[in-house]
C-alpha cells in the first residue's frame, strides 16, 4: 500500500470536513444542531478541524426538550464555553406554553414529536437556511435513503420522492426563501466508526456513556432511568443497575444498556459483540411503529 493512502477514518473525516465547508460556502445562515450526544460532539470536533483557527461560521443550536439528561446538558454548556462558540438554546417547554400544545400522556410520555415544533420555530426565528445534524444512514432505514444535503420545504417536511440526486461530491444546496436544508456530514459513518473515531481523536464524552450505577426500572427488557418525567406504577420494580447509554436522547425515550464498560476500549468491545442495533436497543420511540422514523421525518423531524 502506498504512503499516499488514507485510512478509513481519515477518509470519513475528510469527507465530513468537505461537507462542512460546502455548508459554509453555500449558505448565509447555517446552524449546527448540538445536543451533547456523541454524534453531535463528533460534529463539533470535525467543525474545529474544518474552520480553525477561524470561528465557526454558524452557532450551535440545541432544542431542549426539558427531558434531557443533566449530564448531557452540563457537558453541552462546558464544551460551548471551552471552544468559545455561540450556543443558542430553545426550549420545547416554551413552545408548549406559547402554542398551547398537547403533551403526550402515558408512562413514558415523550416530547420527541413536540421538539419538531420548537425546531421549526427556531429555524424561522433566526432564518436558518441550513441545519447541520449528526444523523447517520446506518441508524435506520428511512435515514439510509436520505441525501447528505436534504432539502425541506417551508413546513420542514421531507419528501423522499422529491430528493435531489447527489452526484460525485457535488452538493446542491440551492433553495428558495423559507426552505431549508438539513445537512448530515457523518451520513456514511456507522456507530462503530463513530466510536473508533472518538477513541482515536481522544474526544471527551458526557459521563453517562460510561458504565455507572443508576436507579432504573425494567420495562419490556429495557432499562429506563428513574426520573420525574416518567410515571412510576406500583407494580414497577426499581433496581440499581450498572448501565451505560449507547445513545443519548430524552430520559423518557432512551433506554440504558447493562454494562461494565468504563473505558472507550471496553465500549468498543461491547459494541462489536452486541447482537442488537443501536436504535433497537436504546430507543423506545422507534418501536411504536415500523415506519416511526419515516413519519417523523416527513413532519420536519431532523
Amino acid at each position: 500500500m502506498s504512503i499516499h493512502h488514507l485510512d478509513y477514518l481519515d477518509e470519513l473525516e475528510s469527507e465530513a470536513i468537505h461537507i462542512f465547508r460546502e455548508v459554509a460556502g453555500q449558505f448565509e445562515k447555517p446552524a449546527l444542531l448540538f445536543s451533547g450526544g456523541k454524534d453531535s460532539i463528533v460534529l463539533v470536533h470535525l467543525a474545529l478541524k474544518a474552520f480553525r483557527p477561524g470561528k465557526f461560521p454558524f452557532p450551535l443550536v440545541h432544542i431542549d426538550t426539558g427531558h434531557n439528561f443533566p449530564e448531557a446538558l452540563e457537558f453541552r454548556n462546558q464544551l460551548a464555553e471551552k471552544i468559545g462558540e455561540k450556543l443558542i438554546v430553545r426550549k420545547v417547554e416554551d413552545t408548549i406554553k406559547a402554542k398551547k400544545l398537547t403533551e403526550q400522556k402515558g408512562k413514558f410520555a415523550s416530547r420527541n414529536q413536540l421538539q419538531t415544533y420548537t425546531l421549526l420555530d427556531t429555524i424561522e426565528e433566526f432564518a436558518f437556511d441550513a441545519c447541520i445534524g449528526g444523523a447517520r444512514r446506518d441508524e435506520e432505514k428511512a435515514r439510509a435513503k436520505e441525501r447528505i444535503f436534504s432539502v425541506r420545504d417551508e413546513f420542514g417536511q421531507w419528501d423522499p420522492k422529491k430528493q435531489r440526486p447527489e452526484l460525485w461530491n457535488t452538493y446542491n444546496g440551492k433553495i428558495n426563501k423559507g426552505e431549508n436544508v438539513r445537512v448530515f456530514p457523518i451520513s456514511n459513518w456507522t456507530e462503530l466508526d463513530v466510536w473508533n473515531y472518538i477513541r482515536r481523536e481522544k474526544i471527551e464524552l458526557p459521563s453517562i456513556y460510561f458504565a455507572h450505577e443508576r436507579r432504573v426500572l425494567e420495562y419490556e427488557g429495557q432499562y429506563v432511568a428513574i426520573s420525574e418525567f416518567i410515571r412510576i406504577d406500583e407494580t414497577d420494580v426499581i433496581i440499581n443497575k450498572k448501565v451505560r447509554y449507547r445513545t443519548v436522547g430524552d430520559m423518557t425515550c432512551t433506554a440504558a444498556v447493562a454494562s461494565d464498560a468504563s473505558t472507550i476500549d471496553d465500549i468498543i468491545s461491547e459494541i462489536i459483540a452486541t447482537k442488537t442495533s443501536e436504535r433497537g436497543e436504546t430507543r423506545i420511540d422507534d418501536k411504536v411503529s415500523e415506519a416511526a422514523m419515516e413519519d417523523r421525518k416527513k413532519n420536519g423531524y431532523f
Binding site: Y8, K141, A142, A144, K145, P160, K161, T190, D193
Partner: peptide, 27 residues
Amino acid sequence: TDGLRAEREQGITIDVAYKYFTTPKRK
C-alpha cells in the same frame, strides 16, 4: 434492503439507498 413504507405501498424503489458493512480488512 427494502426501505420506506412509501415504497412498499406503491411497489416502487426510490432513488439510491446506502448500506454499510465492515470486515477486518475493509469498510
